[in-house]
Design a protein around this nucleic acid. Structure first.
Lengths: 214, 214
DNA sequence: ACAAAAATCAAACGTTTGTTTGATTTTACT
DNA sequence: AGTAAAATCAAACAAACGTTTGATTTTTGT
């Protein structure tokens, strides 16, 4: 589905408001006002508020594919390098679409509020977890990774840590005394810290190497 | 504040519904119906729907203290044992109060929806992160733990992993083929897996010991 | 047993909700 | 230029919302 400028404007405003106040907490009049359109345009273009959030999901899910396939094809990389690419691409994806992933998180907290959306999320999570399992099993086959790794909980730790870091970033800012830092600078600071932290975490946990400082 | 049976009934039903459908997505009539009370009783007892969720937070926050202080006082335990106790008590606390922590997670996703609640959450998170920092610094002082540990992101990983595991437990069930398992059994299964996973994760990451299988 | 207090109820209150209507304006096409 | 389609609008719609009211029942304390 392709959208014109007005429709995109509505979707993007809705994304921001849904992320901030939740789906039920956001009225179509809120959206219409911030998007500078008449209330009736939402039903006119999307059919209903419910179909609007489904359109948002269909749109955002359609993006982001294919960039990670590069990493699978490249045979020059050693297992831990592939894991590191996976970590960084997950951080980039979640940090770069905070509003949408906030909404996704909310949807996961409700059980099956909208079947179409739940199905989108399930498919995405399945791709993510299978990709990580593939990389870990490759590393295990090469003898580089430990055998006793809980595959599905490793991806829980990856996405759980990133999501939770994003959800609590104000708290992180406060306890690390970064309240004065400019927003864009803070975002890249957090990305860098998350990257270091998760890479070190995964390296210690999945590899057979003895730990060495860097 | 102490509540009578009817008030507790309202709070507990509200907790379940807020967790499942969100605060804005739950109507006072939903709550009244499931709690078998008249709609007006909610305003009568709590003043408003908003004050009801604040009462819920005040009640749940008041519990759960003090059990973990035991772990701090005990000088017989080595650092990694204290960390393990912290992990298990976090798992027990979050898994044992899934509805409430679901609501807490939702509140963290909205920026400052209710200042009183945000303040409760901030205080709780501060206690948690400071406790973990204290334990890690003890271990570092004893030479048992590495020096280059990102203190605030370690607790992000702990709580992020548990919260995300709880939020996606239906998915976990499905990809691990546990759909037939009885609910109580699955809950203790997940607790055990989470405990093993997080202990192994923390051991690999924070200690100076070389890894050994168990 | 009685009076005061607390609890409960159906009904109504005024808003806000998502959606539809019908008229009007703007755009697109020949 | 003229007409059909698309877009926009204020207004209205019924339903659901949180809350209040005022009468009635139940509980409590003496």
């Amino acid at each position: 589905m392709e959208y014109n400028a007005k429709q995109l404007q509505i979707i993007e405003v809705a994304e921001r408001l849904f992320a901030d106040k939740g789906f039920a907490g956001t009225s179509v009049r809120d959206i219409a006002q911030e998007a500078n359109v008449n209330v009736s345009m939402i039903s006119y273009y999307f059919g209903s508020k419910e179909k609007l959030i489904e359109a948002l999901f269909a749109m955002r899910m359609g993006e982001s594919r294919s960039r990670m396939e590069m990493l699978l094809g490249n045979e020059d990389l050693i297992p831990i390098q592939k894991i590191n690419i996976l970590i960084d691409s997950a951080i980039d994806r979640l940090m770069g679409n905070q509003c949408f992933h906030n909404i996704m998180m909310r949807e996961q907290l409700s059980s099956e509020r909208t079947p179409a959306i739940s199905e989108h999320i399930r498919a995405l999570k399945l791709r993510n977890v299978q990709l990580m399992q593939k990389l870990i099993e490759e590393g295990q086959a090469l003898g580089a990774f430990r055998k006793n790794i809980d595959l599905s909980l490793m991806s829980t730790t990856l996405y759980g840590t990133i999501n939770y870091a994003i959800a609590t970033q104000d708290f992180y800012k406060r306890i690390n005394g970064l309240e004065g830092m400019e927003e864009a600078e803070f975002q890249s600071h957090l990305k860098r810290k998350l990257s270091q932290h998760l890479k070190s975490l995964f390296k210690s946990t999945v590899t057979n190497e003895h730990h060495n400082q860097d």
